[in-house]
């Protein structure tokens, strides 16, 4: 069989958003939108075997969220390290945190902006 790229979108959107709201409630809507776009862009290029595994977990979590609410699922999974799901949560959280603090280093623990820096501009270089 000829290997082909497997680039199936991972249905992380609702859960990823609620997890981000749970972890960083002070993040502005615009920054949250940018962060989620970044997370999705990384999920789109996962190695193909990972895409299958992460996609399966994302579907499971998404289905659970549609039954009992994405916010509630994010609240539970954000705190509890359930087997299998914990790596999915860690992946989403890692991508989000790396993006948020590299892009806006003046971000407080809750995601709010410490200084009124402008959205979208990295200030890392200015702080060296």
């Amino acid at each position: 069989m000829k290997p082909t790229g497997l680039r199936v979108p991972i249905p992380a959107g609702r859960f990823a958003e609620q997890l981000l709201r749970h972890d960083l409630p002070g993040l502005s809507d615009e920054r949250r939108r940018q962060t989620l776009a970044f997370t999705q862009s990384r999920l789109r290029v996962l190695p193909s075997p990972m895409t299958v595994g992460v996609g399966a977990v994302a579907m499971l979590v998404g289905a659970l969220g549609s039954v009992i609410g994405h916010r509630r699922v994010a609240g539970v999974l954000g705190h509890r390290a359930l087997p299998v799901v914990r790596d999915y949560v860690r992946l989403l959280r890692s991508l989000s945190f790396a993006y948020v603090w590299e892009t806006w280093p003046d971000t407080a623990t809750d995601g709010s902006s410490i200084s009124a820096s402008t959205d979208g501009a990295s200030v890392v270089g200015e702080r060296r």
């Binding site: 945190f97 790396a98 948020v100 603090w101 590299e102 407080a108």
Partner: peptide
């Protein structure tokens, strides 16, 4: 150790370590 990577290193115990991220410098 750019601030994104500092945040990553705190992420496993974010509820306990997260408030230190403002000190990344």
């Amino acid at each position: 150790s750019h601030p994104g990577l500092v945040a990553l290193s705190l992420a496993d115990s974010w509820d306990k370590f997260g408030d230190r991220i403002v000190d990344w410098e």
